[in-house]
């Protein structure tokens, strides 16, 4: 399973119970649509850290890094390469 599918399944299971995964597009806004609130965002970040084994520092906490499945995928990819993410 690629990153996007893994993240999508997590988001559906944790925050959108009962939603058909196909309904959540890779560019859909997770923050302004009310899917993730500030605590949901933290939960998501903690999950990304442990699932993808990428350390997330305070400077990475920019909500833009987590605003959609595509953004999260991009964040994980660049974090794994050790590239600056902000």
């Amino acid at each position: 399973m690629n990153n996007i599918e893994t993240v999508r399944n997590f988001v559906i299971e944790e925050f959108l119970p009962g939603t058909n995964p196909a309904e959540l597009g890779v560019e859909d806004d997770l923050l302004n649509s009310g899917v993730l609130d500030s605590l949901g965002l933290l939960k998501m970040i903690a999950w990304i850290e442990s699932t993808f084994d990428v350390p997330i520092g305070d400077t990475d906490l920019d909500p833009d890094n987590f605003s959609s499945l595509a953004a999260i995928d991009g964040f994980i990819t660049s974090a794994r390469q050790g590239a600056p993410t902000v």
């Binding site: 959108l16 119970p17 009962g18 058909n20 309904e23 649509s33 009310g34 899917v35 605590l39």
Partner: peptide, 27 residues
Amino acid sequence: SSLSSFALKKHCAQNLPKSAIPTLLYV
């Protein structure tokens, strides 16, 4: 209908301040 919790959260986001969008929403 195939109304989902995602569709309802988006509906809430358009009509409510963020703090009033239910965190958990079951259909």
